[in-house]
């Protein structure tokens, strides 16, 4: 500690225990907060990428010729609609690529009948929706599938929201645990330092003067524990990223923590140090109020 302290904290075991607890808290907070950033990133991407897209799928029929005709007809109908910005058939290779995660190499087999997929980009301001498309297409091609991923997106968004709530709860819990532990250790510490505190009080030390010394120490223990927690968390976060990246990008949206995320993770250290400092400060002030 840089500042000379009137209170001897060297003999005080709370100084050994608190940094470890704070390190663990910072570790949990770092995982939760980076998780929150990644999730909100995914949600944002989902929203912007899918909200104007509708997929039209024409199931395979008995003959290749019919398949071709149905595709041409569908494209014509789609392109004639106001509100449809573009309608592009996905190439066979594209469809195969999409199916790969499910079918593996079998997806490339020649004899496998491949449904036609048309990507439609719509302009939602023109009062067009899946319903409109269905109304136009279904009478002509009864088994056609029109899908804007809404349901799946909603499901995904709900799942993400639940995970976000859990992550928030962890951050909240970490904060409360830190506050609770700092209150407890500060009280213990004050008990050990009773004699010194009484002397300081009698010789005319302001309560703030005494509280400051405990606050500075708590802040220092917070920084110490925080650094430890970060040193453990950051490599782990990099590790996660690597593992997820190596799983392949077919099923997973790209996951990465951007600058704001990293900054937030690093800011956990000063934040927890400040929380520890303020908690110790108020705890000491409260407890000193009982002195005559």
């Amino acid at each position: 500690m840089l500042q000379r302290s009137d209170i001897s904290f060297d003999t005080d075991d709370t100084g050994r225990f608190l940094p470890w607890l704070i390190a663990f808290m910072v570790f949990l907070a770092a995982l939760s907060i980076s998780g929150l950033f990644v999730l909100s990133d995914i949600t944002r991407n989902l929203g912007s990428e899918f909200s104007n897209k509708i997929t039209v799928q024409i199931p395979v029929s008995r003959s290749l010729k019919t398949d071709g005709l149905r595709k041409t007809e569908t494209l014509r109908l789609l392109r004639a609609l106001t509100g449809v910005k573009r309608a592009d058939p996905l190439s066979t290779e594209g469809v195969q690529e999409l199916l790969k995660p499910w079918l593996g190499d079998a997806a490339t087999l020649e004899q496998l009948p491949i449904p036609s997929v048309i990507n439609v980009e719509i302009d939602r301001t023109k009062n067009i929706s899946v319903k409109t498309l269905r109304a136009v297409l279904l009478p002509k091609i009864p088994d056609i599938l029109v899908d804007d991923h809404r349901e799946w997106l909603n499901y995904l968004a709900n799942t993400i929201r639940s995970i976000e709530i859990i992550a928030f709860s962890i951050v909240l819990l970490v904060t409360l645990t830190t506050v609770g532990t700092v209150i407890f250790t500060t009280r213990t510490s004050m008990g050990l330092q009773r004699e010194t505190i009484n002397v300081l009080h009698v010789i005319g030390a302001h309560d703030h003067y005494i509280a400051n010394q405990f606050a500075i120490r708590a802040a220092w223990l917070g920084v110490k524990g925080g650094m430890l927690g970060i040193i453990v968390s950051v490599p782990l976060l990099f590790g996660f990223r690597f593992v997820i990246a190596s799983l392949g990008t077919h099923l997973m949206p790209e996951i990465s923590l951007h600058a704001a995320g990293w900054v937030s993770v690093v800011l956990i250290v000063p934040t927890i140090a400040i929380i520890a400092m303020l908690t110790a400060y108020t705890t000491v002030l409260k407890s000193l109020a009982s002195l005559p």
Binding site: R4, D6, S8, D10, H206
Partner: peptide, 14 residues
Amino acid sequence: HLSAFDNVALPLRV
């Protein structure tokens, strides 16, 4: 844990 000097200085420092 404080030197004689720091002990005596305490009432002034506070």
